[in-house]
Computed example of a mutant assay.
Amino acid sequence: MANVTFKGTPMTLIGDEVKVGDAAPDFKVLDNDLNEVRLSDYSGQVRLISVVPSVDTGVCAEQTQRFNDAAEKLSNVKVLTVSMDLPFAQKRWIQANDIQHIDIFSDHKDADFAQQYGVLMEELRLLARSVFVIDSEGKVTYTEYVSEGTNHPDYEKALAAVKETK
């Protein structure tokens, strides 16, 4: 399992760690209108999944904005952000921050994504910051479990992985 801390405190991650070469686990999350969405709804496309504890915090907001900006220049790639924020809060945040090129989903109801991808921080019931790239056939081609939850992911590596993935 990935070793993750949050503000220096070790976290227990619940779920199975996803590795490069694995078949991407399907999951269900809620969109901002409380509709259930699955990873399989985006099959046939390259997907980058950006995982943040809460879009209402500085590093998470910047991560989400950076991937939104990058998504505008990517073709045949769907960028998804997942957090434990309530869908209503996500919707307000999207509107306030002019997010137009990515989809943001809530895992608050069942923590299904969190458990499928091994990112549920048991002590906080928040998602561990991470990034996953999945090819159009459903194979994981890139993973990053950020070791300290208040740090940024490696944007350049994640975006390079997207560009190399078909």
Rank of each mutant, 00 (worst) to 15 (best):
A2G: 05
V4M: 07
V4K: 08
T5Q: 04
F6K: 04
K7S: 08
G8F: 08
T9V: 14
L13P: 00
L13T: 03
I14L: 15
I14S: 11
I14C: 04
G15D: 06
D16H: 12
E17T: 11
E17Q: 15
V18Y: 05
K19C: 06
G21S: 04
G21I: 01
A23H: 10
A24I: 02
P25H: 03
P25Q: 03
D26L: 03
F27Y: 10
V29Q: 09
D31M: 09
D33K: 14
N35H: 14
E36M: 07
E36P: 08
V37G: 10
S40N: 14
D41G: 13
Y42K: 11
Y42D: 07
Y42I: 08
G44K: 05
G44C: 10
Q45G: 01
V46L: 08
R47F: 07
R47V: 15
R47S: 13
I49W: 02
S50W: 12
V51I: 13
V52Y: 10
P53A: 08
V55I: 15
D56E: 14
N68L: 09
A70N: 11
A71H: 11
A71Y: 13
K73A: 13
L74P: 07
L74T: 09
L74S: 06
S75D: 15
S75C: 00
V77K: 07
K78C: 00
V79P: 02
T81R: 01
T81A: 12
V82H: 04
S83C: 05
M84N: 09
L86D: 10
F88G: 06
A89F: 07
K91V: 01
R92M: 08
R92Y: 05
R92H: 09
W93N: 05
W93H: 05
W93F: 05
I94R: 09
Q95K: 13
Q95L: 11
A96C: 00
N97P: 02
D98F: 08
D98Q: 14
I99H: 06
I99D: 03
Q100A: 12
Q100M: 04
D103T: 14
I104R: 00
F105P: 12
S106W: 02
D107F: 01
D107W: 04
D107Y: 06
H108L: 12
H108V: 11
K109A: 12
K109I: 05
D110V: 00
D110C: 00
A111F: 14
F113R: 00
A114S: 14
A114D: 03
Q115W: 00
G118V: 03
V119A: 12
L120M: 13
L120Y: 12
E122G: 07
E122H: 13
E122V: 03
R125V: 09
L126P: 00
L126E: 10
L127F: 03
S130P: 10
V131P: 10
V133H: 13
I134N: 02
D135P: 14
D135Q: 11
S136D: 15
E137L: 12
V140P: 09
T141W: 10
Y142A: 01
Y142K: 02
T143I: 06
S147C: 06
E148S: 13
E148N: 14
G149L: 04
G149N: 06
T150Y: 11
T150C: 09
T150I: 14
T150S: 15
H152V: 04
H152K: 13
P153E: 12
D154P: 02
Y155W: 01
K157V: 02
K157M: 13
A158W: 06
A158S: 15
L159W: 03
A160W: 01
